[in-house]
């Protein structure tokens, strides 16, 4: 990616003065650029004119009351919404100079570069080793057995799971505890070596200790990956995210540096939400 490119340029600014950007230093490279994104479930509009820039090797948190469209937006980034037949999308989601929604964009190739971790851990009904090695093998990232072993070990180490499972790699992934399963899913995602990892409330089904482990993990993973996470938990956003976007009723109300947003929110709605008046 072109690191000299400014985060924003004048012509990128949409007509409506949406608070979609941050007057940030240009040290962060752009990862995904979203312009005028609209999405409908049948006739219900779920996302309205979203504009947002997601920065490389940062954690961006999407917060907001339930049903505000944050998960739907997340799934636009790797086109998981394609799986729902009634969904219809308009607008630009740009990554690496390509329009993600373009006809000629292969959604399989996109997902190869934009991995995802889900709300509930969903390891495959295979061994721990197979869970991690399956996708890299299919993607031809590794072919030799030794490389594969190495890759699995590296991914499991990166996910902070290696020490716990190194002696039982052949046991089924489902035999692990919930928190371990979720880390296995993260290991599975990073083994593909994506650019972006999307996390859809990755800790909502987990206990507090597992949650803390995964939050630590996110902090470490951002050295290698761009992370976009949805959370219903504001404290979590404040703890792990560099940037935070506040969603409300399908719109982005405010998007800013997390510290700024939580100390001096620009919008009344944001302030009400983070101070707990609704949500």
């Amino acid at each position: 990616m072109n690191s000299q490119a400014p985060v924003m340029s004048e012509q990128d600014t949409p007509n409506v003065g949406q608070p979609y950007t941050i007057n940030d230093q240009a040290c962060h490279d752009l990862s995904i650029r979203v312009r005028d994104l609209n999405l409908w479930y049948g006739k219900n509009q779920a996302l309205k004119n979203l504009n947002i820039d997601l920065f490389q090797k940062n954690v961006t948190a999407l917060i907001g009351p339930s049903g505000c469209g944050k998960s739907t937006f997340l799934r636009c980034l790797n086109r998981m919404n394609d799986l729902i037949p009634t969904v219809h999308t308009e607008g630009l989601v740009e990554m690496d100079g390509h329009d993600v929604n373009a006809k000629k964009m292969d959604e399989v190739a996109l997902r190869r570069r934009v991995g995802m971790v889900f709300q509930k851990p969903n390891p495959f009904p295979k061994s721990i080793y197979e869970n991690v090695s399956y996708a890299p093998r299919m993607h031809d990232i590794v072919s030799r057995k030794a490389d594969q072993d190495e890759l699995v070990e590296q991914a499991l180490r990166d996910a902070g799971l290696w020490n716990e499972v190194k002696d039982k790699l052949q046991e089924p992934g489902t035999s692990l505890s919930g928190g371990q399963q979720q880390r296995l899913c993260i290991a599975r995602a990073i083994a593909v070596q994506p650019d972006v990892i999307l996390m859809d409330e990755p800790t909502s089904a987990l206990d507090p200790i597992s949650t803390a482990t995964i939050e630590d993990l996110m902090d470490r993973l951002k050295e290698k990956f761009t992370i976009v996470t949805v959370t219903h938990n504001m404290q979590q956003a404040a703890r792990v995210a560099d940037y935070t976007a506040f969603f409300h009723l399908g719109e982005i109300i405010e998007y800013n540096d997390t510290k700024v947003m939580f100390s001096t929110p620009a919008k009344k709605k944001t302030e009400d939400y983070i101070s707990g008046r609704y949500g």
């Binding site: 790797n78 998981m80 799986l83 399989v108 190739a109 996109l110 997902r111 190869r112 570069r113 991995g115 995802m116 889900f118 509930k120 969903n122 390891p123 495959f124 009904p125 399956y134 996708a135 299919m138 993607h139 899913c185 599975r188 995602a189 593909v192 999307l198």
Partner: peptide, 13 residues
């Protein structure tokens, strides 16, 4: 479960 399919598709399968 559908989450199983999504997990695989999200890996670029």
């Amino acid at each position: 479960p559908d989450t199983m399919r999504q997990g695989s598709l999200a890996l670029g399968m």
